[in-house]
Amino acid sequence: MSVQDLVDHGRIAPPLDPRKRFLRLTERNVVGYVRAWPILLTGVVEPFLYLLSIGIGVGALVGDVTYAGRQVPYETFVASGMLATAAMNGAVFDTTFNFFIRLRYAKLYDAILATPLEPRDVALGEVTWALMRGTFYSAAFLVTMALFGLTESWWAVAALPATVLIGAAFASIGLAGATYLRSFLDFDFVNLAITPMFLFSATFFPLSQYPDALATVIRFTPLYQGVALCRALTTGEVGVGLLVHVAYLLAMVAVGVAVASRRIDGLLRS
């Protein structure tokens, strides 16, 4: 007998649409976080504080920097970098720390895989939630930037989908990476990957500060793609070349989701 026969005979309810099953996990996270809204809200404050400290505070020490062949105020320059790094940090935190606890300690996914959901739904559901959260934060940050006069073009609106893409790329890779973590000590590896990217992806100062060889290496790193994309959009320096960054980030999503689904399957279904 096939599933369809049983459904036809009224023996079982029609199964969940496999393409939409992952939304159930996303829904769970929404329910869980609705109660924790103050914490969700303070997430908006953190990048804002960085903007005040580094953008305005340090910006007063720096003055203008050269970007795309013209002078831009430092706070305009650094804000777009922070927009991209905030998207990365949020996505990585959600998918490594939270995911790891749920996988290894809370046994949340053991309970979920006893329901019709599949490992792929878990991976997609978590990434989707990370993106929803990230979009909320990015939107808040973009509005702040606009209010401070740190956006120079209407292209800045397109920076929001750009941050979603950055989030998706790092959430997928983070999720895949989290399945390799064995204990909390291994989070040092996460920091070891994130901190140098955060500091050296042309976030706080332009590539021109580096020796040429080093600048070339940095052009190929993941966060640099995001920073370059956001900076071009918020300053309106838009060109076809941006599509390269988009393609790079899309590839990260594809690889991350594929690896994560396979790994979750192996970890939870033996």
Binding site: V58, G59, A60, L61, V62, G63, D64, V65, Y74, L199, F200, F204, F205, Q209, Y210
Partner: peptide, 16 residues
């Protein structure tokens, strides 16, 4: 990052 990278920009003295 801050001392050398950003410091290079700051020590130019263009800031207010």
């Amino acid at each position: 990052a801050m001392g050398i990278g950003l410091g290079g920009l700051i020590d130019d003295g263009a800031g207010s």
